[in-house]
């Protein structure tokens, strides 16, 4: 396992007496995309703003590329790309002037990257920010986070306001950056996007970390619903003793149940009893997310 690019240990942030986020702990490794999920006010933005030094951490540790984020922070930020949630730009500048200003501040020549990404996003760089739609302003903000080819990317709802075509381009760019070894932490309310882009998810709710899990393992561990269709009615006792099945319901020729983990034993038994067809209902990330944040526990996920 390579050294983590982002390491958060017990990160806690209070705003006065109000809890922002408590005891968040996870790592992001080079070439990994972490989907950071949670309802509004869960603590995602607080965590991200703490990582880039906009907030002072109350307790715990936050490191990027092996350095504490509060130490020599400006040098560290040269290696970070950050997209704030609902980013605000200098309204009187054109998109190009804005990006050139930020590139000069970074002392990096980003001209080629700016024009390449603007083309991919179909963005007119010659218009002033205040003349651009919300989606086009978001494109400028996304480009400023990516243009200097950072080693670590922290993106707070990057596709907010982007149309589906641009979202696809954005996904392709993220894939490229991941391939190049960039560590990416992204929050999003578009769960299908996270499911597509992320290797792991961190879910927070009400300031507390609820779950850190690989998406593939999360799906393995989630409860699926299976409908089995037989040539003739079967008896409930047939399925007795098969591990991992719950909520067995008999509807004549159809048997419905929920399964945790591998369903091999169930299917073997069903085949022996005249199975004709099978229908599986996979839990999506949406189902998992909603079960976690509404129940506040790991309902729907096998421990």
């Amino acid at each position: 396992m390579p050294a983590s690019a982002i390491s958060i240990q017990g990160l806690t942030k209070y705003y006065g007496r109000d809890l922002g986020v408590a005891d968040v702990t996870f790592d992001v490794y080079p070439g990994e995309v972490i989907g950071f999920l949670g309802p509004n006010g869960a603590g995602k933005t607080t965590t991200m703003r703490s990582l880039v030094g906009l907030l002072n951490i109350t307790s715990g540790r936050a490191q990027i590329l092996g350095q504490e984020v509060s130490v020599n922070a400006s040098a560290l930020r040269a290696k970070i790309g950050y997209l704030p949630g609902a980013p605000a730009l200098y309204k009187n500048l054109t998109g190009l002037k804005h990006l050139e200003f930020l590139a000069k501040m970074r002392e990096v020549n980003c001209t080629e990257a700016i024009h390449t990404m603007a083309e991919r996003f179909d963005l007119d760089l010659g218009r002033r920010i205040h003349e651009l739609s919300k989606g086009n302003q978001q494109k400028v903000a996304v480009i400023q986070a990516l243009m200097h080819k950072p080693e670590v990317l922290i993106l707070d709802e990057p596709t907010s306001g982007l149309d589906p075509i641009v979202q696809r381009e954005f996904s392709a760019i993220i894939d490229d950056m991941q391939t190049r070894g960039t560590a990416i932490l992204l929050s999003s309310h578009v769960l299908s996007e996270v499911e597509h882009l992320a290797d792991r998810v961190v879910i927070v709710n009400a300031g507390k970390q609820v779950l850190v899990e690989e998406i593939s393992r999360l799906k393995e561990k989630t409860v699926r619903t299976i409908d089995l269709y037989f040539a003739m009615p079967v008896k409930e006792e047939v399925f007795a003793g098969i591990g991992g099945i719950k909520d067995l319901r008999m509807y004549g020729n159809r048997v419905s149940c929920t399964v945790v983990g591998a369903e091999n034993a169930l299917l073997r038994c069903a085949v022996d009893n005249g199975l004709e067809s099978v229908q599986t209902h996979e839990s999506s990330l949406d189902d998992i997310f909603f079960s976690l944040v509404s129940g506040g526990d790991t309902n729907g996920i096998a421990s």
Binding site: R49, V52, G53, L54, A73, S74, A75, L76, R77, A78, I80, Y82, P84, A86, P87, A88, L89, Y90, L102, M105, R106, E107, A141, Q144
Partner: peptide, 17 residues
């Protein structure tokens, strides 16, 4: 107040500077 600080202050330049 205009929230442009979120981008300006995450550039590789210290707040003091």
């Amino acid at each position: 107040e205009r929230r442009t600080a979120d981008i300006l202050l995450t550039l590789p330049i210290s707040r003091v500077r």
